[in-house]
């Protein structure tokens, strides 16, 4: 596999990295948009891309771990979990700066509960994950509607300032997203747990027989995904001035798209973290590029679809597994 090529960092070796094409595509989309920009707009675009990609990357990392578990494993409750966590935590904080950290605990707690509920549906009722998380998402969305009837509550000013602020020119939410990615990378590549997840996705039976605690791995993976979704909901609502019932909608597609574009195997077992960020940047930059060139929505969706197919084809052309 590509691991042996670390010692000779040539272009060919690099291009065999599964995440390579996502970054190439992001750079190309950025370059093409840059042609239309004069002055300091290039920096603005990078800042905007880092900011918005951070949200996609955090939910995408949760989704990546779930997809790594193998065919049929996908978390469709991410949008509803984001909305519910954001609604409840912002309602709890009620704009009060002293409650920022407890509010974060509420958001993460909501995510944790949603993850536990998802897992119990899968484990106790033996419902396939795709159906379990889909039906659970209706429940979470209804709870969000019922708890606040769609009213937008403002985040505390300090939290709003933090999420929209920058540190040395780098958006704060991007730093948070990078920290999450770094932790996920260590977990996936350097920990026993990461090996277990990959083993689970490559062959569940073999993993079970070799002593991997497969049910614990599955439980923690779904809980992790929901916790990251809850955390993203908290950040996104604070960033955009309040929780809205439809705030998570587009993150269902995005969370899966960044995993696929990032070069992770959709059949599970093989994933990588840098690709998630590459995919997240790409999903933002491609829309910006096509909007900047004034292309219509129909064309935009077509091109996005074609590029996703192209990247997946290019990424799967690497070493046979």
């Amino acid at each position: 596999m590509a691991d042996t090529s670390v010692n000779r960092p040539s272009f060919i070796a690099l291009s065999r990295r599964p995440w390579f094409w996502a970054w190439v595509a992001s750079a190309a989309a950025y370059g093409a948009t840059l042609l239309l920009i004069d002055g300091g707009g290039g920096i603005d675009l990078i800042q905007a891309a880092l900011t918005f990609a951070a949200f996609s990357a955090i939910v995408g990392i949760g989704q990546m771990f779930v997809i790594t578990l193998g065919p049929g494993n996908v978390d469709l409750s991410i949008p509803a979990t984001m909305t519910l966590a954001a609604t409840l935590s912002l309602k709890f904080m009620g704009g009060s700066a002293g409650l920022i950290l407890p509010g974060l605990v509420v958001a993460v707690g909501v995510g944790f509960s949603a993850g536990v509920a998802n897992y119990l549906l899968i484990r106790m009722l033996r419902i396939p994950p795709i159906i379990a998380t889909l039906s659970a998402s209706f429940l979470y969305q209804s709870l969000a509607i019922w708890s606040n009837r769609g009213l937008r509550i403002k985040p505390p000013q300090a939290l709003s300032d933090f999420t929209t602020g920058t540190l040395l020119g780098v958006p704060n939410v991007a730093l948070v997203g990078l920290a999450v990615a770094l932790a996920a990378w260590v977990l996936l590549e350097r920990s026993t747990f990461g090996r277990w997840i990959s083993a689970f996705g490559q062959n569940e039976r073999a993993a079970r027989l070799s002593g991997v605690p497969v049910e614990m791995v599955r439980a923690l993976t779904f809980i992790g995904s929901a916790v990251l979704a809850g955390f993203t909901g908290y950040l996104l609502a604070s960033f955009s001035g309040g929780a809205a019932l439809n705030m998570g909608t587009e993150y269902l597609l995005i969370s899966i798209a960044v995993v696929v574009i990032g070069g992770c195997s959709i059949a599970g077992g093989y994933s990588n973290v840098p690709g998630i960020w590459g995919g997240a940047l790409f999903m933002f930059l491609i829309v910006s590029m096509l909007n900047s060139y004034g292309l219509g929505a129909g064309f935009r969706l077509m091109i996005t679809g074609a590029i996703i197919i192209g990247i997946v084809a290019a990424a799967s052309g690497r070493d046979p597994q």
Partner: peptide, 21 residues
């Protein structure tokens, strides 16, 4: 011209992406 999907956060994202150009 961008699509904001009648949602503040989607509109914010789309406008931020197109503004530099």
């Amino acid at each position: 011209e961008v699509h904001g999907d009648w949602a503040q956060d989607v509109a914010q994202k789309a406008v931020a992406g197109v503004l530099p150009s």
